[in-house]
């Protein structure tokens, strides 16, 4: 990690993109953006934009992949060739294969797969623009898309990354902070049940720093969770009102 001459945090504690250390980027979410998919969501954290689509539960092909007691989840995390500043080859890289697995395992903790034995639920995640924190954004989007598809799950999953930049803990790091920082810790959580479903750490944090970072992440995740819920509610708010009129 070469020292670049750009300061990532200035003397007033303001970050490179003008945020405070414990501030997340502006979040926007929408659900049901794709008509062909059973469920879909478009989520962006600042410049990072991710599209997720859910198909299923449906019959799995090839048949031998299915499990007799539950549905299988198939997750494909993919970065669009135009998502980065330099063209990314569209072929799945090692990193994408790994992230697909990590996201799948997180989602498996929340989805009631046992309700649909012998089927598959396919989740396609497409990173349209990458600026750090794509795995947590993807996880947030995938969870929203699953809810939109009407797939039963324990709770929505929201995620955020905490990083250490110039010796300081910062929330929701972007690409510049990720490559110039000392640590990156993505956290995924089911906030209502208080369960952590994703926890990774790249770099090093002291015990105290870790505790502090978790606190920051949980606080931010609760904020993101509220936005998730509001997004889902908005889609169906119209229906509730009209049904009340009928009563």
């Amino acid at each position: 990690m070469g020292k670049s001459n750009i300061k990532l945090i200035d003397e007033n504690g303001i970050r490179i993109d003008g945020r405070k250390p414990d501030q997340i980027r502006p979040v926007s979410m929408s659900v049901g953006v794709l008509k062909n998919a059973q469920g879909s969501a478009l989520v962006s954290f600042g410049k990072t934009t991710v599209l997720a689509a859910v198909y299923g539960p449906r019959e799995a092909l090839p048949r031998h992949m299915t499990l007799p007691d539950r549905a299988i989840l198939r997750v494909r995390y993919h970065m669009a060739p135009f998502s980065t500043t330099e063209r990314k080859s569209p072929a799945p890289t090692r990193r994408e294969v790994e992230l697909s697995k990590v996201i799948r395992e997180s989602l498996e903790a929340s989805v009631f797969t046992e309700l649909y034995p012998r089927t598959t639920i396919d989740i396609f995640i497409e990173v349209l623009q990458a600026d750090g924190g794509t795995r947590t954004t993807s996880l947030t989007a995938a969870s929203l898309a699953l809810a939109d598809a009407g797939i039963p799950m324990r709770d929505l999953i929201a995620g955020v990354a905490v990083g250490k930049v110039e010796g300081m803990l910062v929330l929701d790091i972007n690409e510049a902070e990720d490559s110039g920082g000392q640590a990156d810790m993505p956290v995924g959580m089911m906030p209502n049940l208080g369960k952590i479903v994703l926890l990774q750490l790249n770099g090093s944090l002291s015990r105290e720093e870790f505790k502090e970072a978790m606190k920051m992440a949980i606080k931010a995740i609760k904020e993101i969770y509220l936005i998730q819920k509001q997004t889902l509610r908005e889609k169906y708010a119209k229906i509730t009102e009209e049904e009340r009129e009928v009563e």
């Binding site: 929340s110 809810a147 039963p152 799950m153 324990r154 709770d155 929505l156 089911m190 906030p191 209502n192 049940l193 819920k229 889902l232 509610r233 169906y236 708010a237 229906i239 509730t240 049904e243 009340r244 009563e247």
Partner: peptide, 10 residues
């Protein structure tokens, strides 16, 4: 009655 609930809602 008739409330809308989301996954994880008590």
């Amino acid at each position: 009655q008739k409330d809308i609930v989301l996954p994880g809602d008590l």
